[in-house]
Amino acid sequence: MRSAPRGAEGSALPRWVFAPAALGALLVVVPLVAVVLRVDWPDFVALVTSESSVAALRLSLRTATASTVACVVLGVPLALVLARSSLPGLRALRAVVLLPLVLPPVVGGLALLYAVGRQGVLGPPLEALGIRVAFTTAAVVLAQTFVSLPFLVVSVEGALRTAGRRYEAVAASLGAAPSRVLLRVTLPLVLPGLAAGVVLAFARSLGEFGATLTVAGSLQGVTRTLPLEIYLQRETDPDAAVALSLVLVVVAAVVVVGVHGRRGAGPGTR
C-alpha cells in the first residue's frame, strides 16, 4: 500500500519518536488483547447466539444501517453547502454541525429528549400527528444519526476541498447544468471520501450508547442495541458481556480495515 517515497520519509524520523509511539500503540493494543484473553471460549458461541444477544446484534445492524443512510441523505448536501457555497454564517454552521463530535453522547441524548420527547419542543406537534419518538426504534436511529452525522460531513467536506473546483468549472464552461455537474463530476470525485465517511458513520452508530440510553430507553428487540445489551449483561453475566464486546471489537476492526484500505487506494481522500 505505502509508496516508496513515504518509506524514505519514515527513515528520516528521529529515533525518540518511536518510544512514545510504541507506548501509544500499546495503550490501545493491551486492553483489546485483554478482552480476547478474558473471553470464555468454550461457551463463546452459546453466549453470542443467545436470544437476547442475537436480538441486540440484529437491532444494532438494522439501526446502524438506517442511520448511515440518513447520514448520507442529510450529510452529503450539508458537506456540499459547507465546502462549495458562500452563504453567510457558514463557519458557525460548521461548528454547530461538528458539535456532536465533542459532546458527551448523554448530552446529545438529553438535547434530543428536549427536542422530540413528549415534553420537548416538537413533542406536542408530533403527538398531534400521532408520532411517538421516545422508546421507539426510530429514537435509536435518531440518536445514532445525531452522533454520526459529523463523521460523514467531515469526510465528504474534506474530500470536496481536496478535489478542488477545476473539473466542475470545466464541466460548467462546457454547458453542464449545476445538477449535472454535481451528479456527474463532483460526486464521483469525492466517492472515496464518501465511502470513508459512510464506514465511519456506520461504526459510530454501531457503538452509540449514551444518547440511545437517554432518549430511547432499553427494550429487547426494540431499543436495546448491542452496546446497551453489553452494559446490561455485565451486571449478571460478565462472560456474555465480554463475548459480545469481542463481537463489537471484531466488527469495529473490519470497519477500520475497510476505511484504511480505501484510504490507501483512493485518490480523492485526504
Binding site: 413528549r118 415534553q119 422508546f135 430507553g217 431499543t223 436495546r224
Partner: peptide, 20 residues
C-alpha cells in the same frame, strides 16, 4: 408490558421526571 427496561433505577426515575 414496559416500554423500556432500564439498567439502573436512576434511569427509570429520569424517564418519569422528564415526562417521557
Amino acid at each position: 408490558r414496559p416500554v423500556s427496561e432500564e439498567s439502573s433505577v436512576t434511569d427509570v426515575l429520569g424517564k418519569v421526571t422528564s415526562g417521557e
